[in-house]
Design a protein around this nucleic acid. Structure first.
Lengths: 343, 343
DNA sequence: CCGCAACGTTACAGCGCTGTAAAAGTGGTG
DNA sequence: CACCACTTTTACAGCGCTGTAACGTTGCGG
């Protein structure tokens, strides 16, 4: 237990508290012999600094909050890990928060900062409006993640969704796909990310001179793989003719894959499939699913570094960083080996 | 920002700091009119209590640490979510830590407590020895998770691994399996959980009068799905004759499934498959994988409740709680519909 | 051998809140 | 109306640490 206090060490070593503090903090101007004497006292007494007292004295917590919709969603848990690891290397710790996309919980995120729990917040908003975000993040170090409507005044990190969708679609076309569908929209969904990805999808089709009816955008009832399966089955039952699917995320991709498997449709031979987020879900599926892969490490480091700058006192206008993405090519939409083969 | 202090509110309302504090804490003996006056001051000034100062004054942090090997492993992230949600309902927050199974990181876990960062620790140890665990958790509120060698003096929550493995194996046998393998051991692994699960596997076989050579325990080179695939392929290449696989976890199960898929072996018709942990990996696979399902909510609530009792001052001997588990029956080893059909 | 830097160390006032103990108010009784 | 038993409010001393400012100490040039 935190029984031993700085004062105890000071008394034991016969020096002032401040000197002990200086030793603890590796302050340079301490004579080696003094440093050693104090260190011995620290070791002898088993002293551990009390973080809370330090925080109160310095006003800094050494913690940042990471607020995401669901902490056990593969994308977020993988991203969290990256952020936590990068934070550790910068001497920070991460407090994870789950908002479940609820407005109340999202609003509460910034309260942690106000209450001095953390020095800043990395936040993936879903339901908070742009203007509310702008208002709430006044004077609070915040970095936003994701593709919701983000106010220009707030720092923001994301990948180029339009380009990523375009590239994924081009990849499908290069495989010989001519009638791809976008499994994307969710009924009642208002997220901007879907729009951006759809835009890239259509850009690629247009550039390739492919013209498709709007029926080639599939809609699921919610964000679950089951809903995705149903959407694919509905399309198939309705006789929709398609040879590739670009999914808005990996959960949709595994759902689509199930539906295709169940019908005995070969992936990628009959229908090629691309997911999004490059999570464990796509890596471990069979066949392994090609997936748009945001550079999670870059996302993590960019977001944290921007945040730490804000915490450090930076007061400039919102920075908007685009981090790299790639297409993680796997079996569900493999690399073109020979000439584009017709599907 | 935390500009407004308790003293400011007190001055504004013309009362003492303590009265404001009492209002903030809903202390009962405050006259309604006084409460209202203070509340108005709080609202007018936008006062938010400073958590750090409160912590220093009370000595309690309202946070518990959850230390697991990998925060983005589906099992741990799903468990974390449960724990975080239960903690929230009890007024606590969870600080997540990743040990990567490294002894140093595992040892550091208890330091957080010593430094006053958290009030207690829920810890899933891997590489820390039993005696070290016993020593390190003296006088520190700790609850252990998992199946490592746990000292009897420390609180511990887990499922009955032997029984779970036995039931899973019985389920495979009920499906008609006669030559199941256990995909379990990892070279150089010393974890006890594998042993327990293997024990249950063998118990079930013995009870059913099935006698198998030791070659029916498959060994992978590490914990990845790839290693699992390779192990299955090796067994198949070696001509090992088996009709069911019990995997030590879901990652192994998805790896095994890939290998079987790739060879055109039907699951469950030719080989039935059972995973372990009931994570997103098994739920979203195709076919969906039957998996031993620890009651994660029960695990979470038991562990946290035990911990909160310790934090509350309980000093009794170690409690050892077994939480329920079920077998989440899915397509890879479905329920028996008719009489047991031979595979 | 004095004066002045730069170095080393110390004393002490907070950081913002809560627990304690005591003071002040309230009302019921005899 | 004095007294007692509560209830309500207050003053103030910490919680354990760090920042500041000030106070020694050295070492070195003149």
């Amino acid at each position: 237990m935190g029984r031993v206090r700085l004062a105890d060490v000071a008394a034991y070593a016969g020096v002032s508290m401040k000197t002990v503090s200086n030793v603890v903090h590796d302050y340079p101007h301490v004579k080696p012999e003094m440093r050693q004497r104090v260190q011995e006292a620290i070791d002898a007494l088993g002293y551990r600094p009390n973080v809370t007292a330090r925080r109160l004295a310095t006003g800094r917590t050494g913690m940042v909050a990471l607020a995401v919709p669901e902490i056990d969603h593969p994308y977020f848990s993988e991203l969290s890990r990256r952020i936590a690891e990068h934070a550790a290397s910068r001497g920070y710790r991460v407090l994870m928060e789950q908002t479940l996309s609820e407005p109340g919980a999202e609003r509460a995120v910034l309260r942690d900062r106000e209450e001095g729990l953390v020095d800043g917040v990395i936040f993936h908003p879903v339901s908070t409006t742009q203007s509310e975000l702008a208002r709430l993040s006044r004077d609070v170090p915040v970095v936003l993640l994701g593709e919701a409507a983000i106010p220009l005044t707030v720092d923001h990190v994301m990948i180029d969704n339009v380009a990523a969708a375009r590239e994924a679609t081009e990849h499908l076309l290069s495989l010989g796909a001519r009638r791809p569908v976008f499994l994307a929209a969710v009924e009642g969904d208002v997220t901007v990310s879907t729009d951006r990805r759809l835009e890239g999808f259509q850009d690629a089709l247009q550039a390739a001179g492919v013209r498709l009816p709007s029926s080639h955008v599939l809609t699921a009832s919610d964000f679950s793989p089951q809903a995705s399966s149903e959407a694919v089955n509905r399309a198939l039952d309705a006789g929709l003719d398609f040879d590739a699917i670009l999914c808005r995320d990996d959960q949709f991709a595994v759902g689509a894959l199930s539906a295709l498997h169940a019908r005995g449709i070969s992936v990628p031979d009959e229908i090629a499939l691309v997911g999004w987020d490059d999570t464990a879900l796509s890596r471990f599926a069979y066949p392994a699913i090609t997936s748009v892969s945001p550079d999670k490490a870059a996302l993590a480091t960019s977001a944290l570094d921007l945040l730490l700058e804000r915490i450090g006192g930076f007061h400039g206008p919102g920075r908007h960083v685009i981090t790299p993405h790639t297409l993680a090519i796997r079996e569900s939409a493999p690399a073109v080996t020979e000439a584009a083969r017709p599907l």
